[in-house]
């Protein structure tokens, strides 16, 4: 069973993001970048499925700038077998990414695509569901447990109000939620080994996929600031304050 894992390079989740003064975007200069945390969970799951014997090959793919090779090397160090970079400096929308991934699926013919539920830069939570729709494959979004067997996958999903279990016929698209697993740190020997694993680079233009943006960003602004920071001396003061400012 072959697993395809799309991974995105994003601002590290610990970085405090700043909006540019000219409101054209956020400041990415000299900012620490990393693999999107949900993609790490997806890679970890694919590797565990391979370690369990349920999967045979794990292919990581990223669409992004030349530096996304580092993200793919991280996936390889975690245990992916090979990697593909679809290189572009364009910032693509989820629909375009889903179309590019559909083209890669057509070439690679994986049995299952495991990806992150959400990229923490755009916070779209859309690409996996879009890919599933474009391929007309079943989807299991927000997975917290995955059991792969021949021809199907049993997936527990995090839904409003609790958990739901579904069974999807393979091939399918599965998106990872936080509770699916805890990603490993790549060991030094594995980081070294990863340098020798195959990493193919293709130009986005070579795929012939329509990636024209549908949304024009008119501006990126800072949200209104909260004026917090008031400390009180006792629990009783909390209550009297809530009374005086009309909450009770």
């Amino acid at each position: 069973m072959k697993v395809l894992v799309p991974v995105k390079r994003v601002i590290d989740y610990n970085v405090k993001v700043r909006v540019k003064a000219d409101q054209t975007g956020v400041d990415l200069a000299n900012v620490k970048m990393a693999m999107n945390p949900f993609c790490e969970i997806a890679v970890e799951e694919a590797v565990r499925q391979k370690e369990k014997g349920a999967a045979t090959e794990v292919v990581a793919v990223s669409i992004g700038p030349v530096q996304a090779q580092e993200t793919l090397r991280t996936a390889l160090a975690m245990g992916a077998d090979r990697a593909i970079l679809i290189q572009t400096d364009q910032d693509l929308e989820p629909l375009a990414i889903a179309k590019v991934l559909a083209a890669i699926v057509a070439e690679e013919a994986p049995d299952v695509v495991i990806m992150g539920k959400q990229a923490i830069d755009g916070d779209n939570n859309a690409t996996g569901q879009m890919l599933s729709a474009l391929l007309d494959w079943p989807q299991a979004a927000f997975a917290s447990e995955l059991v792969l067997s021949a021809g199907s996958a049993k997936v527990t999903r995090e839904i409003d109000g609790g958990l739901q279990t579904v069974e999807v016929a393979l091939p399918a698209v599965i998106t990872a939620d936080l509770r699916l697993n805890e990603p490993r740190y790549a060991s030094l020997p594995n980081i070294m080994k990863a340098k020798k694993k195959p990493l193919d680079v293709k130009e986005l233009s070579a795929l012939g996929v329509d990636t024209v943006p549908r949304l024009k960003v008119l501006k990126v602004a800072e949200p209104p600031k909260r004026t917090g920071g008031v400390k009180v001396g006792s629990a009783a003061e909390i209550v009297s304050n809530l009374k005086s400012n009309g909450v009770f």
Binding site: K16, V217, L218, V220, A221, E222
Partner: peptide
């Protein structure tokens, strides 16, 4: 719409 965990608000115009 908010992006980056609400640290920025993006105004987008759709051509769809």
């Amino acid at each position: 719409r908010p992006i980056y965990a609400g640290n920025a608000l993006e105004t987008v115009q759709s051509s769809d």
